[in-house]
């Protein structure tokens, strides 16, 4: 019996169990605070689906030895451009989403390639350089949003120049994945398509990780000397992983936006990388190892903490935005913890 329990606990890990327990406790607390638990759960599920792909984008980067991809805004920006172009082309519904994805994927491939070239030149400092590449790209795009020649009135400010800070997708592909085939069980809604899409992306990444190229990529990440001795090209494999990660970032933001209902331009993508990194770390990943399981568990836990903690905290401490502060503490605390674990302490 004991052995069985241990076998069950081991892959999840004690810290995870504590967080799961805490999350459960939050739900119980929510129930006693007379909060609408079903709404919380609905929100929780949606947030998992909408953030999951951004978290998934961390997997190839971590496995190829680059570490958590702090430069994911590079991909996010590509996704935003794709989305804006699809609106500019006046696409609606599923069409708009597909067009947005089709435009942003090649964009992200090119951007990811360039980013990969850079990362190959700064081995050992990828996290720091990635962070600032992300920041730089976002602030550069701030200028671009001001001067890009979009004409659609949904995108532009009605007066003056430049694009809106938030662009509503209500007429375009708002909830395009959330709504169809949603299953209602009592008061709980399961966004079927959103999950199908998320799990499909997970499956694609899993397939890749078990292909010849994917296995090579993991070998490169785990032991580059071994990889070289087995005739693999380290730089090329890191490049593939960077491109994959960037493309996933682009798709990730589109999924995020369709669920959120808006595109957020300007400085909104600036700190998105940290939330994604924190999520996968909470799921049990480290800066050198990550699995699809870590992505799903991590997104579930991290988003759960955010969604449920917010109203509960507001009931307990009605003043101020305690949950936002807690998010900051948890998010950066977990990253900091992972960094100290990664060591280099000698």
């Amino acid at each position: 019996m004991k052995g069985k329990v241990q076998a069950l606990i081991k892959p999840i890990g004690i810290p995870r169990l504590i967080i799961v327990a805490f999350l459960g406790l939050l739900y119980v607390a929510a129930f006693f605070c007379k909060l609408p638990v079903n709404d919380l759960l609905n929100g929780h599920l949606v947030r998992v689906g909408m953030n999951g792909i951004l978290v998934l984008a961390m997997v190839p980067a971590i496995l190829s030895g680059i570490g958590p991809n702090f430069g994911i805004p590079v991909g996010i920006v590509c996704g935003l451009i794709g989305g804006l172009i699809s609106i500019e082309l006046d696409c609606y519904g599923a069409n708009a989403f597909i067009v947005a994805a089709l435009i942003s994927i090649p964009l992200a491939t090119v951007a990811g390639y360039l980013y990969g070239v850079l990362l190959n030149k700064v081995k050992g400092s990828e996290m720091m350089v990635g962070t600032y590449v992300g920041f730089s790209v976002v602030s550069l795009m701030c200028i671009a949003w001001l001067i890009l020649p979009f004409t659609s009135m949904e995108i532009k400010w009605p007066i003056g120049r430049g694009l809106r800070t938030t662009i509503s997708l209500a007429k375009r592909f708002d909830k395009i994945l959330n709504a169809p085939f949603a299953i209602h069980i009592g008061k709980i809604t399961i966004p079927t398509m959103l999950f199908v899409f998320f799990f499909a992306m997970c499956f694609v990444v899993w397939l890749f990780l078990n292909s010849k190229a994917g296995i090579a990529m993991k070998a490169v990440g785990q032991n580059s000397k071994f990889a070289i001795a087995s005739g693999m090209n380290v730089d090329q494999n890191r490049m593939v992983s960077t491109i994959l990660s960037t493309v996933l970032g682009a798709i990730g933001i589109l999924v995020y936006a369709q669920s959120y209902g808006f595109f957020q331009l300007y400085t909104a993508p600036l700190m998105m990388a940290f939330a994604a990194v924190a999520a996968i770390l909470i799921g049990g990943a480290s800066s050198t190892n990550a699995t699809i399981f870590h992505v799903i568990l991590g997104t579930f836990l991290f988003q759960g903490l955010l969604v449920v903690a917010l109203p509960v905290a507001n009931v307990i401490v009605p003043k101020g935005n305690l949950s936002e502060v807690m998010r900051v503490v948890v998010q950066y605390g977990i990253i900091l913890y992972a960094l100290t674990k990664a060591g280099g302490g000698k």
């Binding site: 010849k212 296995i215 090579a216 993991k218 070998a219 785990q222 032991n223 000397k225 071994f226 001795a229 087995s230 005739g231 693999m232 190892n289």
Partner: peptide, 27 residues
């Protein structure tokens, strides 16, 4: 077969079977 068994010769966090197959798979 490298002199640096743990540094070059093995993927320490992979299984025996994948270690044995890895190079033949890639090459």
């Amino acid at each position: 077969v490298s002199e640096d068994r743990r540094g070059v010769g093995l993927l320490l966090d992979e299984s025996i079977d994948l270690n044995i197959a890895m190079t033949a798979m890639q090459v």
